[in-house]
Every structure is written in structure tokens, then in C-alpha cells.
Amino acid sequence: MKVPILKQGDYLIASVQSVLTDLDLKQLHDDLVEKVGRFRSRGVIVDVTALDVMDSFAARMLRTIAHITKLRGAETVVVGIQPDVAFSMVQLGLMLDDVTTALDLEEGLAYLKQLVKGNSTKDD
């Protein structure tokens, strides 16, 4: 199932559905990279609340998304990792060290807002 991407102000919000194939993930990656450039987004939120399994491929794709969007000037936050999924991920060895995570959409947005605010005050 294709992942819908919403544009909200400076941010893009991608809400992952429960059944996520590798193809969907690659599509999500391509879509996000394209949209970050087109909308000049400052932040990306990938909401994985509905995801019931995160395997090494999914984790790798999320990491790649975070890295590439960063190179294009947008910070990515992965939100909504379920407790059971988080536990399985660390047992598997998927720490997602270099990816920012937050509890849910609300927290993710709060984080991005603060980040953008922080950056712009520095610019002033």
C-alpha cells in the first residue's frame, strides 16, 4: 500500500500503513526525496504507528531516508514506533542510532518546531 504524504507548512508527514512491502518503502523514499526538494521542506515526519513489524530492510530504508533528506536540508523524525516493535528492533540489533525518534506525531512536530526556531534565532 502506497504511503500517503501530507504537506503541512514547512513539514512533510508520511503515515505508514500496516502492510508495508519493500516496494512501498522504496516508493516512500523516492517520494520524500522528491517532495523535500520541491516544497523546500524543513522537516519530515515518518509516522510508523500502524507498523507491526520493523525488519532490517525497513530500518535501513528509514535510515537512508533520514540521511538523504538531511543532505537536502530537512530533518527527519521517525515517530510512533510501538513498544513491542522497539523491543524486537533492539534484539535484532537495529538501534537506529543516527535517526531521531519521538513518541508520536505531536512530539515529533514539537521537536521540529523547536529545531527550526533554534536554527532561525541563530540566523538572526
Binding site: 513489524v53 525488519d55 513491542d84 535484532l92
Partner: peptide
């Protein structure tokens, strides 16, 4: 959490 663990292993 064990169900998730099993599903993750199958996925791998």
C-alpha cells in the same frame, strides 16, 4: 511483544 519478535524473525 513475543508475537512481534516472531514476526520480525520470519521477516528476516
Amino acid at each position: 511483544s513475543e508475537l512481534t519478535t516472531i514476526a520480525t524473525a520470519i521477516s528476516e
